[in-house]
Simulated scan of single mutants.
Amino acid sequence: MAKANPLQEQLLKAGLVKKSQVSQAAREQVKARHGKAPVAPSESQREAERARAEKAERDRALEAERKEKARAQELQAQVRQIIETNKVKRDGEIEYRFNDGTVIRTLLVNALLRRQLASGALVIARFGEGVELLPRAAADKVRERDPGAIVLDNAQPGSSE
C-alpha cells in the first residue's frame, strides 16, 4: 500500500479518521491521477494548443513554399546551363521569322540553320532577353525543366504559336 502523506498520518494519530478512510482517500487520489477520464483542459490550455497547432501549420506552409522556390531556382539554373553549353552559333544573312507569343521576331541564319529549324533538328529557346538555337536533344532537356523556355519547335505540333 502507498505510504500515507504526513497530514493523513497526523489525522490517524489524533484519532480523527480511521485507517479505512485513509486508504479510501489514497485509492481515490490514485484513480484521479491514473483515471481513464482525463481532466478537461481549461480554456487557456485549449487556446494555447490551438495557437501551437496554427503556428506549426504556418511553419509547414512556409517551409514548403521555401522548398518550392529553391526547386524553381534550381531548375532555372539548369535551363541556363543547358542553353549556354549547347547553343548553336548563329551566322548568316537570311531572315528567319517566328512567333514569340504575340510578337514576331527575326533571326539571321544561313541556309543550313534554316533547313534544320524547318525540319525540327534545331529549336529556338528563350535565353535571358533574347533567344538561342539549340539541338533537339538539348531542347528536350530544357523542355523537361521549363516548357515555357521553348519558343519554337517545328517537330512538336502546335509549338509555333
Rank of each mutant, 00 (worst) to 15 (best):
K3V: 15
N5P: 06
L7D: 08
Q8M: 11
E9T: 12
E9H: 11
Q10W: 12
L11I: 04
L12W: 04
K13E: 08
K13L: 11
K13C: 02
Q21R: 10
V22L: 04
V22H: 11
S23H: 13
S23F: 01
A25C: 07
A25S: 09
A26C: 04
R27Q: 13
E28H: 09
E28C: 06
A32L: 14
R33N: 08
H34T: 14
A37Y: 09
V39Y: 02
V39H: 02
A40R: 14
E43H: 04
S44I: 13
S44A: 13
Q45G: 03
Q45S: 12
E47G: 10
R50F: 11
R50I: 12
A51G: 05
A51W: 07
A53C: 01
A53Y: 07
E54L: 15
K55C: 03
K55V: 08
R58N: 06
D59E: 14
A61L: 06
A61G: 04
E63P: 03
E65T: 11
E65G: 04
R66G: 06
E68N: 09
E68F: 13
K69Q: 09
K69H: 10
Q73L: 14
Q73G: 13
E74G: 10
Q76A: 14
A77Q: 14
A77L: 10
A77H: 08
Q78W: 02
V79R: 00
V79F: 00
R80G: 01
R80A: 09
R80D: 15
Q81I: 09
Q81S: 14
I82Y: 02
I82D: 02
I82E: 01
T85H: 06
T85W: 04
N86A: 12
K87W: 04
K89R: 14
I94M: 14
E95S: 15
E95I: 07
F98C: 04
N99F: 14
D100N: 15
T102V: 12
V103F: 07
I104H: 03
I104N: 06
R105F: 02
T106G: 04
T106D: 02
T106N: 12
L107C: 11
L108K: 10
L113G: 01
R115M: 05
A118P: 02
A118I: 15
S119Q: 12
G120F: 00
A121Y: 08
L122K: 04
V123Y: 00
I124P: 07
G130I: 00
G130Q: 07
L133C: 03
L134R: 05
R136G: 06
A137Y: 04
A138S: 00
A139W: 01
K141L: 15
V142S: 01
V142P: 07
R145H: 07
R145P: 05
P147E: 08
G148N: 10
G148D: 12
A149I: 06
L152V: 15
A155F: 08
Q156K: 15
P157H: 09
E161I: 11
